[in-house]
Nucleic acid binder design. Structure first.
Lengths: 205, 205
DNA sequence: GTCTATAGACCGATAGAC
DNA sequence: GTCTATCGGTCTATAGAC
């Protein structure tokens, strides 16, 4: 066996990477519009335009497909976090993240997983990419939350964990979908309205 | 065929009703703890302690089982609405309903349905009991929302529909489940915290 | 000519329906 | 208790790159 030249290797790797990206994009879209249970592996293969067996060359199970999609959105979230201006206030950063999350969901690009599926949970927990991303995002947000509370722009009476979970929950808030179905507001108006209920609350100020 | 005596009919009806109540209670519990997709009809039959065929005597499909559970919680909600003191303020009533909804969810008695399943949606929409209950609850809450906004206790800048959907969404808020898993707070504390984020918002007042 | 990746048939299990 | 459909996962023959 000859050692493959760097060029050859890079080309093959590029091919693999490109295809994997296409797979993950399809999975992401299908997870967003149908959810994990309703999404079938055959469907994914058909959507990508490859055979099912080829899928299994890349990902050993349906759970791993979903996991890859989750890792992808988390990477996107991390990229967004890094793109925020360094001189912005903690509250502005937190608001920007919440807004971004809702925009992704309204754009139909937020994969939705059932929170009860245990085999899926196990796969996610075993994935270093997923867990590392989750922890890094949580740490980043956690720091901003505590800073915002210290300077009084976020309610200091709330445990930071409650604030963190409340922000995460915006990624799967059914209110966005319901308001979109109602058809009375543009996507941007919907985001503004839910941002208001989230940060200002339902009561008058 | 003899015409059945009133006593006999009432007895038979009672039996049917009792069994149906048992079925719906099992379905409700299973829907709450596993969700619609993960719940199997065999499981329901085993839980009730009857044959699967008997289930189909009562409910023609899995979707109808779920629908019956939804009608049940809606009845419970309507009963709760009627139990509220007549002299309470609109805001107090709204808060009481939100609190009740979260308590039901934390007690593991809130059936959770996938919002994307179209055959399930179709079954719900066709059910007069479900739709009537939903409309009645929405009307009741809608009246309180507008009254609360008129007297300035709820933010009048929010469309009433947004407030209504935000309240409904508390029935499936994943923050409750996450906080419960974290194990740092009692159920009552969790409800208080989420009530605070919902009505007062994340920002300081 | 060899070797890899693919396409598409195929299998076993499971769940809904009757 | 059976029947059928579907889905996750596997197997094999083949096409094409080198």
């Amino acid at each position: 066996m000859n050692a493959p030249t760097p060029v050859k290797l890079s080309f093959k790797a590029q091919m693999l990477q490109a295809r994997e990206a296409a797979i993950i994009q399809s999975v992401n879209r299908l997870l967003a519009e149908k959810g994990f249970d309703a999404m079938t592996v055959d469907e994914v293969a058909a959507d990508v335009g490859i055979a099912k067996a080829s899928l299994y060359k890349h990902f050993p199970s349906k759970e791993d497909l979903a996991c890859a999609a989750m890792v992808r959105v988390m990477r996107r979230a991390q990229d967004f976090l890094q793109s925020l201006p360094a001189d912005a206030s903690p509250l502005d950063n937190i608001r920007a993240v919440a807004r971004w999350t809702m925009q992704v969901q309204l754009a139909g690009e937020m994969p939705s997983l059932p929170s009860q599926n245990s085999s899926l949970r196990a796969t996610l927990m075993k994935s270093r990419d997923y867990m590392d991303g989750l922890i890094e995002i949580s740490d980043q947000l956690g720091g901003w939350i505590e800073a915002a509370q210290a300077q009084g722009s976020l309610n200091p009476g709330l445990p930071p964990l409650v604030v963190l979970y409340t922000l995460f929950a915006r990624a799967c808030d059914p209110v966005l979908e319901f308001l979109k179905m109602a058809g009375l507001h543009t996507d941007e108006q919907i985001v503004d309205l839910v941002m208001a209920t989230c940060f200002e609350g339902l009561r008058s100020r």
